[in-house]
Amino acid sequence: MTAYLIQRLLSMLLSLLGVSILVFWMVHLIPGDPALMILGERANEAALQELRQQMGLDQPKAVQYARFLSDLSRLDLGRSFRTKGLVAEEIGRHFPPTAELTLAAMLFAIVFGILAGVISAINRGGFWDFATMFGALAGVSIPIFWLGLMLILLFAHQLDLFPVSGRLDALLDLEIERRTNFMLLDTLLAGNLAAFADAVWHLILPAVTLGTVPLAIITRMTRSSLLEVLNQQYITTAYAKGLSQWIVVGKHALKNSLIPVITVIGLEFGYLLGGAILTEHIFSWPGIGSWLLKAVEARDIRPIQGGVLFIAALFMSVNLIVDLLYAYIDPRIRIQSAAV
């Protein structure tokens, strides 16, 4: 197990180096002068020169990359030229909202996805099966930016059941100290139940929007893998012993069918981080996705580099964890990859 872990970590590090090169060159290929972008309509040559020099843009590319790498090895992502903030700090501030949103979306998708998958598998061929499967297919086909706006319009505006955007009522927020910037955690730490409820309330619509696609995928996966298990010998035996359907499914089949579902969940995290960009944009959610989108629009080099690298590292770590979990559940994987 340790050897496997070390091997995986090494290969991850190598991939990250690859990503760093990719990101660096991609960012520098982006057309549009970052200095001009900062200065806007009123830019003049003197100010441009001065700013380019401050930003180190007048140096040769190789020098810039070497500097980037050496800073990186000290875990220093530099300062943004636009906001003057430390990139690492800004990531630290914008990641928790995204994590909170992603986890909530995942929770929503897992709970309802497995539930729907089970219902569908049990009623195989029946009306509910058909309805769930069609719903699941519709779920992966819907443009999430469209879904988000429809939800706002219906639930926040027409019915006035949910807040429209943001993470917490602006006034309640003043009573809360942002220690972790995980709103749910901060409100609890502050012992402010009203604020906690308000934070949950703000989280629902964006989480549903973001969770819809994974919900659909998890539903399908649960159904198919449950069906596969249900066809196997020991299930038939269990039935033969006269056990009820719920016991068979709940106690024997579901546990065994969850392995592929876990893989899917891991993969979906990557999707969620991407989908979060669109969701955050619509709900004014101050997460890392909208932060990064703003940096890309502004050609703010250091946040783009730092942000993309961070997301890549995160994504790889999630995959690693999933693989480890997988290897833990199913020892065959371990042996296979050790052999490669």
């Binding site: 009123r42 830019a43 003049n44 003197a46 100010a47 700013l51 401050q54």
Partner: peptide
């Protein structure tokens, strides 16, 4: 400290 003085020049 802090970058160029856009308005002052402009």
């Amino acid at each position: 400290v802090g970058g160029p003085y856009i308005y002052w020049t402009d």
